[in-house]
Amino acid sequence: RDLEAFAERFKQRRIKLGVTQADVGSALANLKIPGVGSLSQSTICRFESLTLSHNNMIALKPILQAWLEEAE
């Protein structure tokens, strides 16, 4: 599925960039996405391991996609 593929790709890119889950969570606040502050390390972990609810995964995907584009 698309979400699973993105979560795996996100994790691989994050590791390759040398960024921790906690770093991603705090960096999201710097993107200044309306309504989005920082996220906890555990939320990033649960996204990568696909243990969040489907609706949460869908909500987080564009936010994490934006971070990934900014980081690369």
Rank of each mutant, 00 (worst) to 15 (best):
T43S: 06
Q41M: 10
S49P: 04
G35P: 02
N56A: 12
S42C: 06
R14G: 00
S49G: 14
E8P: 01
V24C: 11
A7N: 01
D2T: 04
A7Q: 00
N30G: 11
R14A: 01
L28S: 03
A27E: 12
H54Y: 13
E48F: 00
I63A: 12
P62T: 04
P62F: 02
A7H: 02
A66V: 09
K61T: 13
V36L: 14
H54R: 15
S42E: 15
T51Y: 03
I63Y: 06
L64S: 02
N56E: 15
E8R: 14
A66K: 13
A59M: 13
Q21W: 08
Q21H: 15
R1P: 08
I58R: 15
M57A: 06
A5L: 14
I63R: 06
D2N: 15
L50R: 11
N55I: 08
L68S: 03
Q41Y: 06
K11C: 03
R13L: 08
Q21P: 09
A5S: 09
V19H: 10
T51R: 11
T43Q: 04
L64P: 00
K61Q: 12
E4F: 07
T43Y: 00
D2A: 08
L52T: 02
E70A: 12
L50N: 15
L50H: 12
T51L: 07
E4Y: 15
R46A: 13
S53Y: 03
N30V: 05
G37P: 08
N56F: 09
K32W: 09
A27L: 07
L3R: 02
N55V: 13
M57T: 02
Q41G: 14
T51Q: 12
E8T: 08
L64A: 01
N30Y: 09
H54C: 05
F10G: 00
A66H: 09
S40K: 13
I44C: 03
A59G: 09
E70R: 11
T20W: 02
L3T: 06
S53N: 03
L68A: 04
V36I: 15
V36Y: 12
L28E: 03
R14M: 02
A71W: 12
V36N: 05
Q65E: 14
S53L: 02
V19N: 11
I44A: 00
A27M: 08
A5R: 13
E69Y: 06
A59F: 04
L3D: 03
S49R: 14
K11T: 09
N30C: 11
R14Y: 03
L52A: 01
Q41A: 14
A29H: 08
Q41C: 06
V36A: 09
K11G: 02
L3A: 00
A7E: 04
D23H: 10
L60Q: 01
E4I: 13
G37Q: 13
G18C: 02
L64R: 00
M57C: 07
Q41S: 12
S38Q: 12
R9Y: 12
T20M: 06
S26N: 15
E70D: 08
A7R: 02
I44P: 00
S26L: 14
I33L: 11
A27P: 00
S42F: 04
A7D: 02
E48V: 00
S40R: 06
I15S: 07
L3G: 00
N56C: 15
T43D: 10
L39S: 07
H54L: 12
S49I: 00
E4H: 10
P62A: 02
V36Q: 10
E8V: 10
S38N: 15
E70Q: 13
E48H: 01
L39T: 08
G35V: 07
L52V: 02
G35Q: 04
E4G: 06
D2R: 05
E70W: 04
S38K: 10
D2Y: 09
H54P: 11
S26W: 14
R14P: 00
R13M: 10
E48S: 03
I15F: 06
S26E: 14
I15E: 08
D2S: 10
K32F: 06
A27C: 08
V19P: 00
R14C: 01
E69P: 00
T51V: 06
R9G: 12
Q65I: 04
P34M: 09
R46P: 00
P62L: 00
I58Y: 04
L52N: 00
K11L: 03
R46T: 04
V36P: 06
N30T: 11
Q12L: 11
D23A: 09
D23I: 01
S49H: 03
A29K: 14
E70V: 09
L68K: 04
S53A: 09
L31Q: 14
F10M: 02
T43V: 13
A71G: 07
V24N: 01
I63E: 13
P34R: 08
F10T: 02
P62D: 09
I44Y: 13
I58D: 03
E4S: 10
N55H: 06
I33R: 06
N56M: 06
C45H: 14
Q41L: 07
F47V: 00
N30E: 04
K11S: 05
E69D: 06
F47M: 01
S40L: 02
A71R: 14
S42G: 11
M57L: 09
L39D: 05
F47G: 01
C45D: 10
E48M: 00
L68T: 02
S26A: 15
V36H: 07
S49F: 03
K11N: 00
R14I: 03
A29S: 14
L68V: 05
G37K: 08
V24L: 09
K32E: 14
E70T: 08
S26G: 09
L3Q: 05
F47W: 01
L39E: 03
V19A: 14
D23T: 11
S53T: 12
N56V: 15
K32D: 14
A71F: 13
I44T: 00
L17S: 03
L68C: 03
L52R: 01
T43C: 08
L39N: 03
F47S: 00
A29G: 13
I33K: 05
E69R: 08
I15A: 08
L28C: 11
R1S: 08
C45E: 15
A22D: 07
Q21S: 10
H54D: 09
P62S: 04
T43E: 03
I15N: 04
G25N: 03
E69A: 10
K61N: 05
L60T: 05
P34D: 08
N55T: 13
A22Y: 06
L68M: 04
L3I: 15
A22F: 12
N56R: 10
L52Q: 00
A29L: 09
F47R: 01
G18Q: 04
L39P: 07
G35N: 10
Q41V: 09
L39H: 01
A29F: 03
Q65W: 04
G18P: 00
L3S: 03
R14S: 01
A66P: 04
E4V: 11
V36T: 05
F47N: 01
L68D: 03
I44M: 01
R13S: 13
I58N: 11
V36S: 09
L3P: 03
S26Y: 12
A5W: 04
P34T: 07
Q21M: 05
G37N: 06
S49M: 04
R9K: 13
L3F: 15
L50D: 08
A66Y: 07
R9V: 10
K16E: 14
S26D: 11
L31A: 05
